[in-house]
Design a binder for these strands. Structure first.
Lengths: 118, 118
DNA sequence: TAATAATATAACATAAATTGCATATTCCGC
DNA sequence: GCGGAATATGCAATTTATGTTATATTATTA
């Protein structure tokens, strides 16, 4: 039951919920994009993403100097369902709309490989 | 986003997850039944149930000296989905089976009104 | 109304999570 | 190899959550 509690603990923070909602929408995002979209400082985002990774909710891959995060796929069904519900709830929040706007208005970055074209 | 974080915080504790799984199975349970099934002390259970009630995940009704808890119905769809996922995960845990056994083996209580037959 | 059962709350101690700031670490281009 | 960009980590302070024990509240029954 500790694993399950850990999953919901990971879902119990606004920054992490907003990050998951953005990842669900964008597919893959680097830390600097999340930092910009969520209007938070970089260590904070890194730490929250580490928390999500540590319990298996996201995976990361390195692309040059960037670390790209995305929603994990190899998780139990009930975890998928919990994440889906979390994303659904987060997407309805007005903060999510603001996050998306900030992400869109982010100044141009050095081009890099992307899973899905933006 | 704070409401949403509060919901997942409520789902992030083993005692509360196990309680929700029992409520999903039994429909309605009083504090002393939960106390017995979860093998915990009474104030602990009362406090955890209060936490669930405070964020709207369960409702309570008084029946004589008992307070009966049950899963709340009037909640947003994504909350229902989150609870369903939580219950699904908790039900798979071996602790849930033990909780059910303890509940079944609970010594007879004074009969009372029940929403569903036992 | 006294005794008892069921539940809630208060007070306190302890453990976890969160944050900001400073500092590593890794990678790229020059 | 150097400088800069992106990311991660360590530390200390603060907040939040949890557990235990004692006590208060509410309802029942004799």
């Amino acid at each position: 039951m500790e694993y399950q509690a850990a999953i919901f603990t990971a879902l119990s923070d606004p920054i992490r919920l907003r990050s998951l909602a953005l990842l669900a929408r964008e597919g893959e995002l680097c830390v600097c994009e999340l930092t910009h979209a969520l209007a938070a400082n970089q260590p904070k985002i890194s730490k929250h993403m580490a928390a999500l990774r540590d319990c298996g909710l996201v995976t990361d891959r390195r692309d040059a100097q960037w670390v790209l995060y995305s929603l994990a796929a190899d998780i139990p069904q009930w975890v998928k369902d919990a994440v889906t519900a979390a994303v659904a709830g987060a997407t309805q929040d007005y903060l999510h709309a603001e996050d998306v706007l900030r992400l869109k208005s982010m100044p141009a970055r050095t081009p890099r490989k992307r899973a899905s074209g933006v």
